[in-house]
Design a protein around this nucleic acid. Structure first.
Length: 288
DNA sequence: CACTTGACCTGTCCGC
DNA sequence: TGCGGACAGGTCAAGT
């Protein structure tokens, strides 16, 4: 669920909240798997270090520390990173807060800062993870070496976009969009949304897509992701930002989770099918 | 090498 | 009301 716009929203929130805070304690609740290399390194390179920056690459969050180590975090499907100030517990949450008192039963890892504030890593389905590693080694992990370019970077060109898809000529366009080695950060929501915007049927083979259609898709993907960031991401079930609040992109979605509703472009009924191993939403009338 | 499928988990929903 | 099964979807390993 957290895709590029959701992870970027969390990043922006944490970038406002964390830098300068000193980690005083870090511990896991119930699930050692969420923080598998929590070991001697934690004591030496995490405790008493200050957060210096919060970065993002694809769907991965990077919290840099003054020790020259980095917390590398993947939220996968149900991960949340929620910050709570020393006194912001319990009652008084804004109406759009999705979660209440923390820790809750999905809390896996807790980071405590010297000023009494805390960062909670929650993850219902336990697919997400936190790893601590030297900052200089982050670019060397397999995922970082394979992952494609950031689609919202100013220098990401249409020519580059088309070029990246050539390696997946014989698969369908939706599977290729979801492939992180082609373009970084696209998941199920924005794949369906951008294909609708470009009027492309998700089942089409990549090699059948024309230059003009790639042009449309390139623009739609960037537009839809920029809009989603502006709306604070999509909250379908679990996703919340760094303050525990929902995102509102789902109010603007054209096809995702809108099966049986009218296509906003042609009025035909939107359908949901199983494709590329995913629930896939489309309008068969205007996506060809 | 290109491509597809299943596994990893838990909570929720649907049909009987 | 209880219960089994399908489903949710990011990534990687294992399969064809």
């Amino acid at each position: 669920m957290p895709e590029l716009p959701e992870v970027e929203t969390v990043r922006r929130g944490l970038a406002d909240l964390l830098p300068g805070r000193e980690v005083q304690a870090a511990y896991q609740l119930e699930s050692p798997k969420s923080f598998p290399n929590a070991s001697a390194d934690v004591e030496q390179f995490l405790l008493n270090s200050k957060v210096t920056a919060v970065r993002r690459r694809a769907k991965v969050l990077l919290i840099d520390l003054s020790s020259d180590y980095t917390l590398v975090i993947h939220l996968k499907m149900t991960g949340q990173l929620v910050f709570r100030g020393k006194t912001s517990f319990g009652a008084g949450h804004p109406n759009d807060s999705l979660i209440g008192e923390l820790p809750d039963r999905s809390t896996r890892v807790v980071f405590e800062f010297a000023d009494g504030s805390r960062l909670y890593f929650n993850d219902q389905r336990k697919f997400g993870w936190v790893k601590l590693m030297p900052t200089l080694e982050v670019p060397n992990i397999d995922f970082m070496k394979k992952v494609g370019p950031e689609p919202l970077e100013a220098d990401f060109s249409l020519a580059q976009f088309r070029e990246r898809f050539r390696r997946r000529a014989n698969t369908n366009i939706k599977a290729a969009l979801l492939d992180q080695t082609v373009v970084a950060g696209v998941g199920n929501i924005y794949a369906d949304e951008s294909l609708w915007g470009a009027r492309i049927d998700p089942r089409r083979l990549v090699k059948s897509i024309s230059d003009q259609e790639f042009d449309l898709l390139y623009n739609e993907l960037r537009n839809v992701m920029n809009l989603a960031i502006e709306k604070g991401g999509s909250t379908d079930k679990n996703y919340v930002n760094a303050e525990g609040k929902r995102g509102s992109y789902m109010d603007f979605a054209r096809v995702f989770r809108r099966e049986n509703q009218a296509c906003p472009r042609c009025g035909s009924k939107i359908i949901k099918i199983r494709h590329a191993g995913r629930g896939t939403h489309l309008c068969e009338t205007c996506q060809e």
